[in-house]
Design a protein around this nucleic acid. Structure first.
Lengths: 227, 227
DNA sequence: CATATAATGATAGTAATACTATTATATTTG
DNA sequence: CAAATATAATAGTATTACTATCATTATATG
């Protein structure tokens, strides 16, 4: 990744945290270790008490950063989507050809995650796994409408909207640009999950196969004329 | 729905329950009321204690039917997918034209659920809502591989395979039949969720719009020649 | 450099959850 | 009617998800 990112901070809705974890060493350790732990033991088994023990800190100290583990998950997910959005904008900004631009976008949002050394306390590869396995749980709740109103999902929504806009730029008459955009993002996570746990339900077995699947899918729909 | 269903029992893996809830009045009340409660309060807030209070029974009695609420969710989901599979097979069995057959299938698995009077203690409309909002939680767990091995997801997998086979029947050269089939099933649930909570991320606002979206998607991919 | 302020840590406590175990009481069936 | 089975009632446990209070340790500022 470009060194430009080293001076970039992913901007996350301030209401998600009590105290910005980027603002202190303890905060960064909370983020760093929670990624490892949630990936290891799953979100259900993960607790602030266990996290405290692991980072040699106290449960009560962690509560000064996040109200609860749900909010921590929202933070991690927002960070991930913000990071992905940055990569997307950075890589596609200079592309003027709409088809090429969408191609590059699909590639970026569906490819296997690679480590980014710009954020030393965040393991992007594991964070991607967390998003695959846990992201749905952050919005499949009874509080969804209230939390959406609070803006806890803006980054994700902005990402979908960006992709939707690119689809419209290619085919203004296609009536399902938003649905297709959300299908790409959500569907990509799902294909990776299937690959690992229900291999018979997917054809995405090779590295970056989801990219090939979605490229084929999207451009079969949008540009059947050029076939 | 056809009266044939009245003599049909949805067959669910016996390891999901301790005692078959279909085998007693209390069992049926557990299923009936748990659907209402999970729909009302969400799976997280739902407990066997609350369910017991609601049906005028005891927490410990419910544990004689299901080990825990996770297993109950697996049961409800299996029942839903089994019910949907039955409808699908019933409605498409006599269709010999592969394209028509897949069309009918997409229609059935993506359309809004309607009440089926054949199973008086099960509210299919609410059960569909539960599947939309909670199904992912049943497999996004650390126990997924063990539970998959136990066969807790066979009905769902069989459904995806059926759709995948129909796709292959239309285009044997399309290399992503399984991925496309899983995208239809999972994507349909997701579009309904978006419609209710993130309307800007979907174009599926009208009744049964997901059906139109997926019909267009699938047949743009599979039969671009006939366009 | 002293001291105020903020950050962190330690300890305790609570209500609820997700159970298990035991015993009592109905209900069914042979 | 007796035996077996199903259900209900009660109690108990470890863990979770916090809240509250107070002590200690950094750090910042005057």
């Amino acid at each position: 990744m470009d060194r430009l990112l080293q001076s970039v901070k992913i901007n996350i809705n301030e209401n998600i945290y009590v105290k910005d974890p980027e603002s202190s060493d303890l905060g960064k350790r909370i983020i760093e270790e929670s990624i490892l732990m949630i990936n290891d033991m799953g979100f259900e088994s993960f607790t602030f008490k266990k996290l405290g023990a692991k980072i040699g800190s106290n449960e009560s100290s962690i509560y000064r950063y996040f109200e609860n583990k749900h909010k921590l998950l929202l933070y991690l997910a927002s960070w991930y989507w913000g990071w992905l959005e940055y990569q997307l904008v950075f890589a596609t900004n200079s592309i003027s050809n709409p088809k090429e631009k969408l191609e590059k976008t699909i590639e970026i949002v569906t490819k296997a995650t690679e480590e980014d050394s710009s954020f030393s306390h965040i393991n992007e590869v594991l964070l991607n796994k967390i998003v695959i396995n846990e992201y749905s749980k952050s919005y499949l709740t009874k509080e969804i409408d209230a939390e959406n109103k609070e803006g806890y999902f803006i980054i994700y929504k902005r990402l979908v909207t960006r992709i939707s806009d690119m689809i419209k730029a290619i085919d203004p008459d296609y009536p399902y640009a938003s649905s297709l955009a959300s299908t790409i993002l959500e569907g990509s996570l799902h294909q990776y999950f299937l690959r690992d746990h229900f291999p018979s339900l997917t054809d995405c077995h090779a590295k970056n196969a989801p990219t090939a699947y979605f490229l084929n899918l999207v451009f079969s729909i949008l540009i059947p004329k050029t076939k």
